[in-house]
């Protein structure tokens, strides 16, 4: 394609430049500020690039950058624990979401063809309504005097109200609930495309329905499973709203730590260092996710 007209170039350049300036460049700024020091000034960090001093100013700027914030992060166990516990919470909730999501996606793909568009629509609809509102809805249910406890007490299943609200359990429920459509849809997409005659062939060759599922259906739906797991796992690691509203003081998650450093402690350099480390943690899964998406696009 060497015959690209100036118009076509502009077509590519416009979104490209937008993303370079508003998506990529900001990360470099985060990196720079994470190497700066906290200061009582506006903005609250030093050093600043002072271009009026020319080369000397620039040299001064680089000389004043250091890894102090990262050393602090490494030494304080709070941050390491927050990273590890975010990873754990994200991994466990991705697994639970996969189990529930697969069952629903499987049922959707097996539903009579004329029901399917409506059923898929019903799965997507909650995803369109506000995330914040859906998390908020669980507060009234999970509270100590909430509806779940009232219901369980009235049927006599429990004698004392359960403490679910402000625990990590509530965070799991919140993540599974909020991210479920992201798991169902990619799995449904692969299951729906599957050739039914493969299952008949497996049955003809003596395979039980159970074995056919594990030997045929499951491997064929693997691309959907992978896509779904990425879509849940990566954002869940940095989740802020769910641990903040449903979790308790013992629920450590890195997204919340970053928020607190930034808004409550107003330590911008430290918040930037947390963000940089979080990003490093996520780069591998994000690149794998992008590869997989590109492969789907070209192959599918």
């Amino acid at each position: 394609m060497n015959t690209r007209t100036p118009g076509q170039r502009l077509l590519i350049a416009l979104p490209y430049l937008w993303l370079l300036v508003l998506f990529l460049a900001p990360f470099l700024i985060v990196l720079k500020i994470s190497l700066s020091d906290l200061a009582v000034s506006r903005p609250p960090y030093t050093p600043q690039i002072d271009l009026s001093e020319g080369w000397a100013g620039l040299k001064d700027f680089f000389a004043n950058l250091d890894f102090e914030n990262y050393i602090f992060l490494a030494e304080d166990s709070l941050y390491i624990n927050a990273y590890l516990s975010s990873l754990k919470i994200a991994a466990v909730s991705t697994f639970i979401t996969l189990l529930i999501g697969y069952a629903i996606a499987y049922a959707l793909a097996r539903a009579p063809r004329r029901w399917r568009p409506t059923l898929v629509m019903l799965v997507i609809l909650p995803f369109w309504t506000s995330f914040l509102i859906r998390v908020y809805a669980w507060i009234g249910i999970l509270k100590t005097e909430g509806l779940l406890n009232q219901a369980l007490l009235s049927i006599g299943l429990i004698a004392e109200p359960l403490q679910i609200m402000n625990t990590t359990t509530a965070v799991y429920i919140g993540i599974v609930y909020s991210y479920l459509p992201f798991m169902i849809l990619p799995i449904y997409a692969t299951l729906e495309k599957m050739d039914e005659s493969l299952l008949e062939a497996a049955a003809d060759l003596g395979s039980s329905r159970f074995a056919a599922f594990f030997l045929v259906t499951l491997p064929l739906s693997l691309p959907g499973i992978i896509a779904g797991c990425f879509l849940v796992f990566i954002p869940a690691i940095g989740e802020f709203v769910i641990p903040d509203l449903l979790g308790g003081s013992d629920t450590l998650m890195i997204g919340k730590t970053l928020w607190v450093e930034f808004f409550n402690n107003r330590d911008w350099p430290l918040a930037s260092a947390v963000a940089t480390l979080l990003l490093l943690l996520l780069i591998v899964p994000i690149v794998l996710f992008q590869r997989q998406q590109m492969k789907q696009e070209i192959g599918g």
Binding site: I12, L19, P26, L231, I234, L279
Partner: peptide, 27 residues
């Protein structure tokens, strides 16, 4: 790089996107 910049924001934790944009606007 372009496709990376299209797909990354889909899964990027919002706290990172928010913080980095704020620091851009300030700088």
């Amino acid at each position: 790089l372009f496709s990376g910049m299209i797909y990354a924001p889909l899964v990027m934790p919002e706290v990172i996107t928010g913080l980095s944009l704020l620091l851009l606007f300030i700088s």
